[in-house]
Amino acid sequence: MDMNFTADSSLAPSRWRKVAYGGMQPGYDDNHTDETFLEDMVMNANVVKRNMLKVMQDSVSISQYLCIVFLVVLVWIYTLRSTLNENSLLLLDISLLGSGFIILVLTEEMLSLKRLWNYILNVSFFTTGLFVLAPIYQTLTRSISSDSIWAVTISLLLLHLFLHDYSGSTIRPSGALKNPNLTSCISLNASIVASVFIASRLPSRVHVFATMLFSLQIFLFAPLVTYCIKKYSFRLHLLFSLGLMAVTLTFVYSLHCLLFVLLVGILIFVNVVCPYWLIRIQEYKFEINGPWDEAKLCFDITD
Score class of each variant (00 low, 15 high):
residue 151 A to Q: 07
residue 73 V to N: 08
residue 283 E to R: 15
residue 131 F to W: 09
residue 48 V to Q: 13
residue 58 D to V: 08
residue 170 T to K: 03
residue 271 N to Y: 01
residue 33 T to I: 02
residue 42 V to I: 06
residue 134 A to G: 12
residue 13 P to R: 00
residue 75 V to K: 09
residue 252 V to M: 11
residue 137 Y to V: 12
residue 99 S to M: 04
residue 238 L to H: 03
residue 294 E to V: 11
residue 121 L to N: 02
residue 23 G to I: 08
residue 270 V to N: 10
residue 138 Q to F: 02
residue 256 H to W: 14
residue 85 N to G: 05
residue 4 N to L: 07
residue 260 F to K: 15
residue 210 A to F: 05
residue 292 W to D: 03
residue 32 H to I: 02
residue 100 G to R: 12
residue 190 A to T: 09
residue 138 Q to D: 07
residue 129 G to V: 04
residue 202 L to E: 04
residue 290 G to V: 03
residue 183 T to M: 15
residue 194 A to G: 10
residue 73 V to T: 06
residue 161 L to S: 12
residue 247 V to R: 15
residue 303 D to W: 12
residue 299 F to K: 13
residue 242 L to D: 04
residue 170 T to Q: 12
residue 163 L to Q: 02
residue 43 M to V: 13
residue 293 D to I: 05
residue 192 I to T: 06
residue 18 K to H: 05
residue 228 C to I: 02
residue 99 S to F: 06
residue 287 E to R: 09
residue 258 L to C: 04
residue 185 C to G: 02
residue 172 R to L: 07
residue 67 C to R: 05
residue 285 K to D: 11
residue 38 L to E: 01
residue 106 L to P: 04
residue 249 L to T: 02
residue 115 R to F: 11
residue 168 G to V: 14
residue 96 L to Y: 04
residue 235 R to V: 08
residue 296 K to R: 14
residue 240 F to K: 00
residue 27 G to Q: 03
residue 128 T to A: 15
residue 131 F to V: 11
residue 73 V to I: 11
residue 168 G to E: 12
residue 137 Y to G: 13
residue 202 L to M: 13
residue 46 N to F: 12
residue 1 M to V: 03
residue 198 I to D: 03
residue 162 F to I: 09
residue 16 W to G: 01
residue 57 Q to Y: 07
residue 68 I to R: 00
residue 137 Y to L: 11
residue 3 M to L: 08
residue 204 S to T: 15
residue 264 V to S: 09
residue 211 T to R: 14
residue 157 L to H: 12
residue 108 E to V: 05
residue 27 G to R: 01
residue 279 I to T: 09
residue 36 T to V: 00
residue 148 S to V: 09
residue 90 L to W: 09
residue 135 P to Y: 06
residue 58 D to A: 06
residue 281 I to V: 15
residue 94 I to K: 00
residue 134 A to K: 08
residue 106 L to V: 07
residue 90 L to G: 02
residue 201 R to V: 05
residue 131 F to A: 14
residue 161 L to Q: 11
residue 37 F to L: 01
residue 288 I to K: 12
residue 106 L to G: 05
residue 47 V to C: 03
residue 64 Q to E: 08
residue 87 N to V: 13
residue 145 S to Y: 01
residue 21 Y to N: 08
residue 212 M to V: 14
residue 147 D to Y: 04
residue 255 L to Q: 14
residue 287 E to D: 13
residue 134 A to P: 08
residue 205 R to V: 15
residue 283 E to P: 06
residue 243 G to H: 06
residue 172 R to C: 05
residue 212 M to W: 10
residue 294 E to K: 14
residue 192 I to G: 03
